[in-house]
Design a binder for these strands. Sequence first.
DNA 1: AATAGAATTTAGACCCACCTAAAAATAATA
DNA 2: TATTATTTTTAGGTGGGTCTAAATTCTATT
Lengths: 225, 225
Amino acid sequence: MYTESIEDYLKAIYEIQKEYGKVSTNSLSEKLNVAPASVTSMIKKLSEKKLVTHKRYQGVKLTKAGQKISLEIIRHHRLIELYLAEALGVPWDQVHEEAEKWEHVLSEDLEDRMDAVLGHPTRDPHGSPIPSRDGTITELDSIPLADLRSGQSAVVAEVSDHDPDLLRYVGKMGLYPKTKFKVLSIEPFNGPIKIQVEGSEHILGSGAAQYVFVTEVELPQSEMT
Amino acid sequence: MYTESIEDYLKAIYEIQKEYGKVSTNSLSEKLNVAPASVTSMIKKLSEKKLVTHKRYQGVKLTKAGQKISLEIIRHHRLIELYLAEALGVPWDQVHEEAEKWEHVLSEDLEDRMDAVLGHPTRDPHGSPIPSRDGTITELDSIPLADLRSGQSAVVAEVSDHDPDLLRYVGKMGLYPKTKFKVLSIEPFNGPIKIQVEGSEHILGSGAAQYVFVTEVELPQSEMT
DNA sequence: AATAGAATTTAGACCCACCTAAAAATAATA
DNA sequence: TATTATTTTTAGGTGGGTCTAAATTCTATT
């Protein structure tokens, strides 16, 4: 078994790798709230354990072994999030924090039991895919809501869980995964976006719209070929 | 918040205090599987934090503050045990290990939710009382099954959860909390005990009978006054 | 190509919780 | 009571994960 800290680093590396491709010391430092120097020394350790590859001043990359572990932790995390939401009614903006702690001490047995109770789910409450036990994951092919244009409809695929305030904000307008909505108008220069969700209209700031990812985008009637 | 280690020490101190009255350095060393020297230094720390009182070479005692924290952890532990058993079907010999890890990272909010889902229970799966949120606990007034005599009936109150094998062993004969049974015979010199549980007979080793605590003891007909 | 600025790494230190070995205090027994 | 045995404490060290300050390397810009 690995320490909680190692698991946190691996998870962070996976997530940064997914979002930006490259994983720098500084990006880890920010994400994990530790000093860059601390990251360097941990990278050295991870590298010795063959969990990442590292070229000095060039960032890190997960090895097969490292990725496997990081996906196990992510699986724990997302199963827990979903379980807490479903079974205990924890609101979607609180499940992340709870899962952050619990994920490190969840046994395989309990993981399986939760998985079974939930019916072998594939998405967590924010729409993120839950890796399978053997470490495979199918990342979603979605785009930020902010990239839509006036008149387009789409379905919410995933909402970033990095900020509880954001989740509450978009939750208030019903923008949960699988919810269909329509962009009524979108102002230029990152202006506010007017959307229609289940009959009612809402205004969404562009900052938030960066973190709401959508799929099944439909062109407006007027632009159909 | 306190470290996991501190919480473990406080819990151990509470339990030893309850079982033996006095809490020595060695008893903690054994219970926590750490060297006596390590216990001494942790005691110093706990003492500085006013969680225990300590006279050199004389053992420790929980302060009010220390007891409060230890009961909070025990509450977490036992609520988790019961929740796992009830909601996820984890067998009673496995819930302890799971709870050992989870108890340190359980939020108050989740504690309350579990408590509510379980209907504000007062006993864990082994029959141990669950402290209330404000830190009150009503310890059971029970005696070891081994102290019963031939012909007596009693109800299982509590089974020690210190050893999973023990739990499986007594579980096989149905000796769960609230189960009524009768002592058919008991051999002297810590001999085996023949008991009747729900119609069927079983033989119970005296070692195990030390750890099964019973209540509602009834005298046999022949000895009634 | 030189240099200023940013990113990264090294050096040295801290805290936490643990360890072993040795010393000191207490308890048990001849 | 003296001596031995047991318990507890002190002394000194280790590994894990973090920090700050300083040195190094890379990158971008002139």
